[in-house]
Structures are given as C-alpha cells and as structure tokens.
Design a binder for these strands. Structure first.
Length: 505
RNA sequence: GGCCCGCUAGCUCAAUUGGCAGAGCAAGGCACUCUUAAUGCCAAGGUUCGGGGUUCAAGUCCCUGGCGGGUCACCA
C-alpha cells in the first residue's frame, strides 16, 4: 500500500522511491500531496497554462475603470490567510502581487477542502475569476476556479524576514530572487543600464563587435590572466583581461567607431568590488580624443542614471551625488598636491618622490617606479575624497602603456579616469598610435616584468605591426558595467549586481 | 595570503558563568465566511558545519579542517 501510493504514472516505481529517499520531512509531506493529486486525476505539472493578463496589466486596467469580466491570472502563491471557509492568498507573477479570495460557497466544499489540503506556499497556480475590492480596499480576485500549474516540493524561505544567509542567496540565487523583490529590481535596473549604454553607443555610430575571449597573448590592461590549454593546438591560451588591442586593430582596418560589452577575466583578488569575471564596456572613436571620451562618459552616466533611477540626483550610501554634466576636471598632480602637499612634478623621480613620502610619514606601499608611486599616493589620499563626479587627468606614462604622451610633458599621458563617490568607473586615453613609441612601452613593461611585476604587459609584436600600418588619432574608453550598476542601484557589493558571483575560495 | 566575526529545525533568530537545545514563520491536526506578518489551541520537527581534545557535564572552552562575511594588502 505504501509503495502503491508512491507510484507515479510517469515514472517507474524505482525512480520514485529513490527520489523520495532524498527528501526531508517537509518535502516528503508535499510529495504525498502530489500522490493524492494524481490519484484524483490531477496533473501536478500540467504542460500548459492559460493567462488573460499579467498581474500588473489586470491591476492597471481595473484601476482605469475597465470591466475585465472573467480573468485568468497565473503566479506563485506566497502567503495564505484562512478563516474557516474562506481563504485569502497572495499570488505573485513577474510583474506584481495580487490577492486571491477563495470561498467554499464559490468553489464547492470538495474543491475548497482539497485546496486547503493539497496547495502550498510556493506552488504555481492559475486562478480564474472576477476582480473586486475588499472592504479594506485591496484589489482581489474572487476565485471561481483554481488550478495547480506546478507543485513546489521544497518549502519557500521565511515569508516575513526573507532569505538573509549570504551564501544561500548567492549559491541558490533563485531563492533570493523569489523571496526578495528588491533583488529582482536590482537586476531589472542592471538590464536598463546596459540597454541604455548600448542604445547610446548605437545611436552615435559605434558598431558592436565581438573579439576573442581566448587569446594567445593577453594584453590591454595591467593584470594577471587566467591560463588555459588548447589540446589540439598544443598551446596555452589566456582568457582576455581586456578587449583593447583587438578593438584598436579594427580602427587600423578602417572601422571608425567600435565597441564591445564583454566579460573580462582577471586572476586576482575577490572582494566587494572585484570578481574574477566581470563585465566591461570598451569603445573606440577614430578621429576622436580624450575630450570626446569625456563627453561619452558624461552622456552614458546621464542616460544610464535616467534609465536606472529616473534622476541624476542619486544617493550612494551616505553620499548624495549629482550626475548632471559637465563633470569637474582635475590634474592628478593638482589633486595630489592639494591632499598631501607633495608636488609630483617637482619630485619627479622615484628616489625624490619616495623621500618626500617618507619625510611626510605617509603610508604608501613600496613601489618599483615613479609612476606606480604616484598611483599609490593618489589611491591612498585622493581617491576616497572624490565624491562628486570628477575626471582625473594626466596619468604617469609609466602606468599608461597605451596612452599618448602629453604634448610638452612626456612624464604623463593624455588619460583620464572618472571618479564618483570615492570609486573609479571608467578609464580613457587619447590612444597611442605611434608604433615606435608603442614598441618602446612594451619594452619598458618587459623590464618591469623582469623586476617582478606580474601584471606587466607582454610584448605584442603583432599589435605593433598593426600600428605600423597606421591607426588614426583615436579616443578610447573602458567602463566597468558592474560598478556602474552598483552606483546606480546603491549596492555596495559587486556580488549583489552579478546573478551568480564567484565566491571566495 | 594576514587579522576579526559567523555557521543552532526548511527559513529568521534565541540559549546567562560550561548545567535538561528554545521561539516565530513554514509544514501537520482542530476551530473560525473580509484577511493581509490573520488569530487561538494541540502535536511534531535537531549529527548545534566536520573531526579531535579538556571536563562529571560542551552550542558554549581548546586544537584542527571546511564554508561564508568583513577588513588590510593587489587589481577595475
């Protein structure tokens, strides 16, 4: 008898028995309901559903005064309140929540009893009936017929406190999404950010392209790569750390404006602002320069903020930020001078700058050259203070191997990074198109590598060769899509804007 | 990788100095025809992350391993 009631019409007894052995007590209770339903001839997993409106549509139409008559709504039951022979239930679909009103007098004693017995929170159902308002004024479906669409065997997380455990939220994201409405909104906002960015670029003549993820030589950024192996080719390949060098080759080939929104991979630390795979937008504009890229950043910030938040006045944590262009422009030298009293142009050698830093008792990690020391000084004393959107310009040449040197001052380049609320959101150059200079930069990077800099660029002869054929004067930009989404959704961990983040260790 | 914090019922959380491991939600039973974190009563639910140790006695103290979170260092 026990075995018979576990038989499923669509699977063998053996499989069913094995499955039931995997269930805990709560799940087993629900699985027995599935058996009861099947015995009554009800398929707990019917192949199709019927739906006349989404919940949002039904709500909107009703409020506008339309007479909808009988509607069929579908969704997941998420709460139940019963008082004897009537039950109020909450049902949610992808668009919203609506209350169901089930009454024994309407459904019939048998159906009503079976509903109470065999339906659970988490089940997908189809409710047919008419819309009305309860005496407390809540829009409600007066249910004439209720049908099970998909039985949930496992119980939902707690209905009031939601799912809080970080690990479960990330590893079983579906539980997080079904329980925490605000999490779903973050990912809807992310989609609006990406769509707005793409729409802006498309509208301005940038062509979306795809470049290799697997690269024989990685480059375009200073970072440690992931290494993989191609069996047939019998060689190592690297997962891209940036798209830069492939995209700029396209300008040699006479595409004038290109962009790519891509996953990049960097084999480095994992924390609240870094994941090993992340999404980057890079765009390049032939016959453009740094100031064109500033305009692109301002436009993208404005359009993405409008799409995500509907306003340019946003809150990020404790900061109020105004994203209305134009953004401030400050030379790195001036920013550092103001915050530390050190003039990097006076102390423009490694030894001099290092001595000044020690003299002032500033905490800066030991570095291998002047440029990196400047970068550290900036990161420690300037970056956290940049709340209003600010372009920092004139980066040291030593840390900018793909940027053109500033006319009249070879120590720095035509490069900016955009900072908002103490964080970096984009990086742009007037692109280096002089093949001899580019070749020398690679050589300099190699000497850094020889001195132990694991993030130094490798020589890319093929890229230099491309430049020998002539690349027009060009402005290029990279923006972190995840970080922009964080800013625009007020999230403070990158894991909260990535559906399936890599977890630590 | 260093340091700090956490891991207890399906979920959210308690547990005093080392002294019988508890509550709410969910799920089970009963009552209740306008509830909305419904309510009332009853019953059930545990390898306290794993392993080892100290102790008459360990959720609690010690050692060790695992998995998370925060922070510092590096990178975006």
């Amino acid at each position: 008898m026990a075995q018979k009631c576990l038989l499923s019409p669509q699977s063998s007894a053996l499989v069913t028995m094995d499955f039931i052995d995997t269930l805990d007590d709560l799940e087993r209770e629900r699985f027995l309901k599935i058996q009861r339903l099947r015995e009554r001839g009800i398929d707990p997993y019917p192949p199709r559903s019927e739906r006349t409106h989404t919940i949002a549509q039904a709500r909107e139409l009703f409020e506008s005064g339309a007479d909808l008559g009988v509607v069929k709504l579908v969704g997941r039951m998420t709460a139940n309140r019963w008082t004897g022979k009537i039950t109020f239930a909450d049902m949610r679909d992808g668009t919203g929540r609506i209350q169901l009103f089930l009454r024994q007098d309407n459904l019939g004693a048998e159906t009503y009893k079976n509903f109470l017995k065999d339906y659970d929170l988490g089940d997908f159902v189809q409710a047919q009936g008419t819309l009305f308002k309860t005496k407390t004024g809540e829009l409600t479906v007066q249910v004439a017929e209720i049908k099970l669409l998909a039985k949930a065997v496992a119980p939902m997380p707690e209905k009031f406190h939601g799912l809080k455990d970080m690990e479960t939220r990330y590893r079983q994201r579906y539980l997080d999404l079904m329980t925490n409405e605000e999490v779903r909104e973050v990912f809807r906002a992310r989609q609006r950010v990406v769509t707005a960015m793409r729409a802006y670029l498309d509208r301005n003549g940038f062509i979306e392209v795809e470049t290799p993820v697997l690269q024989p030589l990685y480059g375009g950024a200073l970072a440690k790569p992931f290494v993989t192996f191609h069996n047939e080719l019998d060689r190592n390949l690297y997962l891209r750390i940036a798209d830069e060098l492939y995209l700029k080759r396209l300008l040699v080939g006479m595409f004038e404006r290109v962009y790519e929104i891509s996953k990049d991979f960097r084999n480095e630390g994992v924390d609240a602002t870094h994941l090993p795979e992340f999404t980057m937008m890079e765009c390049y504009q032939a016959f453009g320069d740094l100031s064109d890229m500033m305009r692109v950043v301002e436009d993208i910030m404005r359009e993405c903020a409008t799409a995500a938040r509907g306003t340019l006045q946003i809150a990020y944590g404790e900061h109020a930020v105004d994203l209305a262009p134009p953004f401030a422009r400050v030379a790195m030298r001036d920013a550092i001078l103001e915050r530390t009293g050190i003039d990097i142009y006076v102390d423009d050698s490694f030894d001099a700058l290092n001595a000044r830093i020690e003299e002032k008792n500033l905490r800066v990690e030991p570095q291998m050259n002047w440029g990196k020391l400047v970068e550290k000084l900036f990161a420690a004393y300037v970056e956290p203070t940049l709340i209003a959107p600010t372009f920092i310009i004139d980066f040291p040449t030593e840390i900018s191997p793909f940027a053109k040197k500033k006319p009249g001052d070879p120590r720095v380049t035509e490069r900016f990074e955009i900072y908002v609320a103490g964080g970096e959101y984009g990086n742009a150059f007037t692109e280096l198109n002089d093949p001899a200079d580019q070749w020398q930069r690679f050589v300099d990077q190699q000497s850094n590598r020889a001195r132990g800099d694991a993030e130094a660029q490798q020589m890319d002869d093929d890229y230099v060769h491309a430049l020998k054929h002539g690349m027009p004067p060009t402005g290029g930009l990279g923006m972190g899509v995840d970080r922009l989404t964080m800013l625009l959704t007020n999230q403070h961990s990158i894991r909260d804007v990535v559906l399936y983040p890599q977890l630590r260790n």
